[in-house]
Structures are given as C-alpha cells and as structure tokens.
Design a protein around this nucleic acid. Structure first.
Lengths: 294, 294
DNA sequence: AATCATACATGAGGATAATTCATTAATTTC
DNA sequence: GAAATTAATGAATTATCCTCATGTATGATT
C-alpha cells in the first residue's frame, strides 16, 4: 500500500518546499509526483496535503507519514550502502574454523596480516565444534576450515596453504638430542605427550607409529602446550609439533628437534570452503595471505 | 533500489522456508518471487541466497537484509494502520485555541464530553498565543479557535456554539444588588475589575461603556478569577462575566448578578476553523458537542 | 537405476502501473 | 492586468511486474 516511493516523495517535498523542486531532486517530473500523491491519498481515503495558495502543507496524517519516512529512509539507505560494501567484498565477517593446535597457532600469525589488509572485514575463529570441523563447515557455522585433512565432497574445495614437517621435540638432556632422525622403534620406550585427541586423529600415530605397528611406552594427554613444553624440558616425555613451532621453542628452551624417520613426516595445511564461497573477494584474499602471497 | 517488495519477499521466505510457500503467503506466483530476487541480486551484484539442494539459504548479505526487513516492515504496517484509523476519523489530535477566559471556562466542560465520545482523539488546548488567536488559527498552531469574535476570511468558517449574556456581578452589600438592570452611567463611579486585556478587547467597554462614552471611576486588571471574586465579595469593585459562570458564583458566594442595560449584552461563542477542516469527523463532532447536540 | 515428486529458474507475452508530455487552472508578483 | 510560478489533469507512452508454460536440479521411492 504505502511504498518507499511515497515516503521518498513526502521527504523530498518536505526538504524542497515545492512539488516542482522535489520532482527535480528525485529526477522525476512534477506530474509524476502529483499523480503519485493523488493515488496515495485516494488509496488511504485521506488528505495528506492541503493546498495552501500555490503551495502544499502537510496535514496531521501527512506529518505522521513524514516521520515514518524520516525513520525508514535512512535505514534503507544505510542497508543499501552496507550491501554495496559487501558487493565490493569490503565488509563482512570471515568465520574461520580450526581443527588442530598447529592450525590455530599458525592462524594467529595470518590473521594479523589479514586484518591489516582488509580493514572492513572482521574475523571470527571457532575452535570448538559441536561435531567435527567438516560438519561445522557444511552447516555454515563458519566459512573456511583450516585443516590438514582433506575429506573430499563435491560442494567443497580445498586450497593448499603451506607445507610443514612434523618433528619430535625432546629435552637437550634426552639421548635423542642431536640425532639426525629417529625410527618408530625408538619411541617404543618413550613417554609421548599429545593434545587430548584420539590417536586416530594424531599424525604421529597415523603416519609414523601405526604403519610400524608400534606404540609408545606411555601416551599422556596434556591440555596446554606450555605445560607440555615444561614436561619436555624436564625430560618427562617427548612431543611432536610442526617444525616452525618447534623452532620457536628451541630458541627459548633447552629442547632439541629431531626428524621423524629418514624422510620426515610432511604435512600440508588446507583451507576448506564451499565452492560458491571460493570467489568471494575477502575469502580469496585470506587464502592468498595464508599461502604467503600478497 | 531496494524496495519494500524485496523486504517482504525475504521476510516471507524466512518465515515460510520455501519460495513456493512464501509466494502463496504473499499471494504471488513462485515465478514472481524468483524474478524479483534475481533482479535484486543483479542490481546489487551480490548473492543474497545460495541454492542448497532444493532449498535456499541466506548469505551474510541476505541475513543483513532480513534484519532490515524485520525492522522496517513492522514500522510500515504500524504506519498503515494508524493512517487507516485517521481515515476513519478515529485518531488524531484536536488542537483548540481559546481567546478569552469565558471560552476557556466553557471549554473545560465540553472537553470531558468530547474525550468520552471520541476515545481515540486527543485534545490539546492553547491559550497563550504568539500573536492573536486568529493568526494562530491561520498558521495552523491549532485546528479550532473558540472565540466570541468573528473576523471573516474566505478560508475560514465559523460555527456558532452557544449564546450567553454578559452580566455584572456585585457584592450583596452593593447598592446594585437586587436591581433589574444598570445603565452605563451607573458604572462611572464604580471600580471595574477585568482580566489583563486591553479595553478594546473587552465587551463591557466595546458594547456598553464606549457607546455611551463613559469610563468607570477606576479600571483594575486582575489575573485570577478567584481573586477577582474575592474582591467583588468584599465590595472592592464589580466585574462582568457570562451569565452561566456568574450563576455558578452566585450560588456559592454573597454576590448578585445584574443585567447590563435594558436588553442586556448578548454574545455568541463561535468555533472558527479552516473550511477544509470543517468536514473532519472529530472536528464536526466537537462542534456538535459544543452546540449541545449529540 | 529409473521414476516420481518437489522446488527453483527462465523466457515470452500480457496486464498493470508509472512516467512524461502537453495543457489547464490557480495564485502570486510586479 | 500581464507575466511568472506552481499544481492538477488527461492521454499516450514506457517501464515494470506478473503469470503461464516449461526447463533444470535435487531428493525420495521403488
């Protein structure tokens, strides 16, 4: 019944004083406005304006409509410009899910770059999921899943972010310290510290120990990486971390890193996303930043 | 750009789940909605929703628009129903201007009836004007002017409300008490109490004393009618009031009323209004109530 | 797998509504 | 009283929206 065009006319008429000027402001003919207000008054069975000499004056009802116009039109304008910003990919919320500690640790570095590069896009990180990270992605709990595991799905695409190597960290006191590499067998007598995640989701098991059918002497699950590192320092066990994270600790604490097997265990971190999201500017940008480009 | 129809579609889609049902709810074909959406997405260069199997899911941008819809649509609905009430003459504000004390006193009685008769119309009374009451009416500071003076103007109409007689009030001790009438000459030795208004606007002068070229011995202006009455009671002067108001005091205080001249001074109270307002239901009703009808 | 049902997308054509143009009417200004 | 300004009106045009018929994709059923 009442349309935005009517509100625009009322508002323009109020600001410009005369129908003719209001018509100019709206890039329409005076006739068009005259027809429109006539139509509206007829529909509402209500005088909105009173002819006053050769001008128009709002009635009570017209004033009420003017007030509505002054509330609604700015809201619509604001929405319009916000959506324009969306279209340009400048504004939005990039919701990222991370599944593993290394992913999270790595993310914190990339996010800073991203926030700098895209000042109008906010970031939200989810690291605890109702179900799995994959399901979170499929349910649109977040837009991008950072994960080392590709589970193929025709609606999803994965972009490789970067490669890293998993290495063992042991105390400098430990007899592993200084070795070129260790074999799975050498872990059979060790205490292995990991995050509290099932062994099937830990690469040290799936990529290294399980293939050799070997289990560590003991498997202790630790929540915090800092406590885990303290335990490594005091020789209460060994742990496995991405090389770049291990390097970080090696320079600060008396711990050494050792390659897992002759060739080492190599991983790749991927950004998983819905295929229709892959072309959204800020998501593309995030992936490129994650790949070390830009 | 973004029209109410788009907001209605987004809102209906959110409430009904599928395009087809939303189309039913809006009494449109599914095709119409599909076209509208397509048009909007093309204009905004932005996906508002994503096909998900055989359903639709709102994107971030779509969600933003949904929020706007949920704010704006209720406002429009409310405005629409308020205007409908206006059209039925049920709702509004009747702004009344009064120029003289008797008018104001009389109004208070009528207003109670009006508020009872028209529960959805509010009343606002203005009794102090920037300029004259007439100008206030012409400037639309109020809708109806209650006045005893008709000043003709082609844009205004006047409806007679009721007739009254101006009478003199004097203390029961006063020698006027009990007289049939007084002549202008008899006031030449009296103290006349009036409201603080120029003599030209007081009927006792214009209708009674000026024609006889007589002035009272003294003219004292008093703000409050209660104090004025006290002064009359203690014989410090006489005053002139409408008969119905005088009767009111005669029954409570030791004062008497006396006719002014042989035939008395008769007045009529009028409701002045813009001619195009005269047909507004609640204004008509006010006039009829003022005339003692209904 | 093949079939059926459901839901959205699309193109063409027709109905509807909005806009303009040309003109008239009313009012103010000089 | 003439000129200028402003709104109203009617007819013709234009743009827009809607429906119908049909196509395409997906999911359920057998």
């Amino acid at each position: 019944m009442i349309e935005l065009s009517h509100l625009r006319i009322i508002s323009a008429l109020h600001e410009n004083g005369t129908l003719t000027e209001a018509a100019n402001a709206l890039c329409l003919s005076q006739s068009a406005l005259s027809h429109q207000i006539r139509y509206l008054e007829k529909k509402l069975e209500l005088k909105l304006w009173q002819r006053e000499g050769r001008g128009l004056r709002l009635t009570q009802a017209g004033n009420l409509l003017l007030q509505v116009a002054q509330q609604v039109l700015p809201m619509m304008d604001h929405a319009g410009s916000t959506l324009k910003a969306y279209a340009a990919g400048r504004q939005g919320i990039l919701r990222i899910g991370v599944e593993c500690y290394p992913c999270y640790e790595w993310l914190t570095g990339v996010i800073a770059d991203f926030l700098l590069a895209m000042p109008e896009v906010d970031i939200d990180i989810a690291h605890q999921f109702q179900f799995s990270g994959l399901e979170g992605l499929l349910n649109h709990q977040f837009d991008v899943l950072v994960t080392p595991d590709i589970i193929s799905n025709k609606t999803l695409v994965y972009a490789p972010l970067f490669d890293y190597e998993l290495v063992l960290l042991a105390s400098k006191e430990h007899l592993f310290a200084g070795l070129e590499m260790i074999t799975p067998e050498m872990l059979a007598t060790e205490v292995l510290l990991t995050f509290p995640v099932p062994a099937e989701r830990l690469d040290i098991f799936t990529q290294f120990l399980f293939p050799a059918s070997i289990a560590p002497a003991q498997h202790k699950q630790i929540q915090s990486i800092d406590i885990m590192m303290q335990m490594v320092v005091y020789n209460r066990g060994v742990c496995v971390l991405p090389d770049w994270l291990a390097d970080n600790y090696c320079s600060k604490l008396p711990v050494s890193k050792v390659r897992l097997g002759r060739k080492g265990v190599h991983k790749t971190l991927f950004a998983g996303m819905h295929c229709y999201d892959a072309e959204i500017p800020y998501i593309k940008r995030f992936v490129r930043l994650g790949q070390g480009l830009d």
